[in-house]
Structures are given as structure tokens and as C-alpha cells.
Write a protein that binds this DNA or RNA. Structure first.
Length: 166
DNA sequence: CCCTGATTCGC
DNA sequence: GCGAATCAGG
């Protein structure tokens, strides 16, 4: 894979939005996180503080999950059937959501997820982008143990408050 | 072990 | 310039 203008732009965008190198690598496809990091380094992209701590400590990097779009897109893309399993509630609205949404439910459905990652249970199922848009994909980062989302998105989806120390 | 980004260095 | 291997770390 060569670094086209588009890919570089995407790299810069995702990198600046706080996505991990592996996330970016999967998003761009065909490259490893090493390649991403190496390229980012060469582009003189600002380095991020400390990898993990950033996820845990801050939650500024919202990634606009497709809460409603899923349903809307489903209607256009294909007959809705099993897609209704709503993706995680929007960060701003999830404030007091008592129970998290079902994990993998929204993985299956009429929507063409060909662009989505091949997610294992260990990877984040947080939808990113609009299901009907080209760039749509699932987060794909390492998920928290026993959870469908990565640490960053878990906070948005579950609104945990008991792991302040963690 | 899982993961993270940073750096090195042969290509 | 590229990125695998490696390093240093949570």
C-alpha cells in the first residue's frame, strides 16, 4: 500500500482525533500499526501523551456514533429486520442510561457491512460513521475484557463511574 | 499476555 | 520514505 493523498489525510484526521495506531491501521486497511506510527512520525504528527492513560483519563474525543442513522440507513439500504438493536446511545444522551445495549446484535443485519472490520469478540463494536456512508466501520480497537467496546467507547456506552482509579 | 506509541535501522 | 522489529510502558 502506498500513501496516497487520501490515505495520508485520513491518517492525519484519525490521528488527530485520538484514534490509536492500530485503529487507524485497520481503518485504512492493508497496513500495520507500525506503518501508521512510522508514517505519523515521519509526518511530524504530534505525539500523543501516554497511550493508555489518554483513553482512561480523557473523554474528549467523541466519535459521533451512529445512534439513529443506523435505523434510517437500514431503511434505505435494505429491509429492516434485525438491525434495530440500537447501537450505543449517543454520548451526550447516555448520561443516565442504566443498562448498556446488547453487544453484538447490531453486527448482523441487512446493511452491507463489507467495509466493516472482521471483528472478534475482543474488539470494539462501536459503530463509527454513518452506516450508509462509505467510511462506515466499527471501532475495532481492543475491547475491554468481557465487553463489546474498547475502553474509550465503554465510557461512552456504559457511563461507568466505578473505575475512576483504573 | 493484551495492548499502547516511539524508535531504530535495513531495505 | 517505508515499515518490521524492537523498545518501553500500562
Amino acid at each position: 500500500m502506498d500513501w496516497t493523498e487520501e490515505r495520508i489525510a485520513e491518517l492525519k484526521r484519525l490521528w488527530s482525533e485520538g484514534f490509536s495506531a492500530s485503529q487507524i491501521a485497520e481503518r485504512l486497511g492493508g497496513i500495520t500499526r507500525n506503518a501508521v506510527i512510522g508514517k505519523a512520525h515521519r509526518l511530524h504528527l504530534p505525539s500523543r501523551p501516554s497511550p493508555i492513560q489518554r483513553q482512561m483519563g480523557e473523554r474528549r474525543q467523541r466519535s459521533r456514533p451512529a445512534a439513529r442513522p443506523v435505523a434510517a440507513a437500514a431503511m434505505r439500504v435494505a429491509p429492516v429486520e434485525t438491525v434495530r438493536a440500537a447501537p450505543p446511545p449517543p454520548p451526550t444522551v447516555v448520561a443516565k442510561a442504566p443498562v448498556p445495549p446488547p453487544p453484538k446484535a447490531f453486527r448482523s443485519g441487512p446493511i452491507d457491512y463489507s467495509s466493516a472490520l472482521t471483528l472478534s469478540d475482543r474488539h470494539c463494536h462501536w459503530p463509527i460513521g454513518h452506516p450508509n456512508e462509505p467510511g462506515f466501520h466499527f471501532c475495532g480497537a481492543a475491547a475491554s475484557p468481557g465487553r463489546p467496546y474498547c475502553t474509550a467507547h465503554c465510557q461512552l456506552a456504559y457511563r461507568k463511574t466505578d473505575d475512576a482509579a483504573a
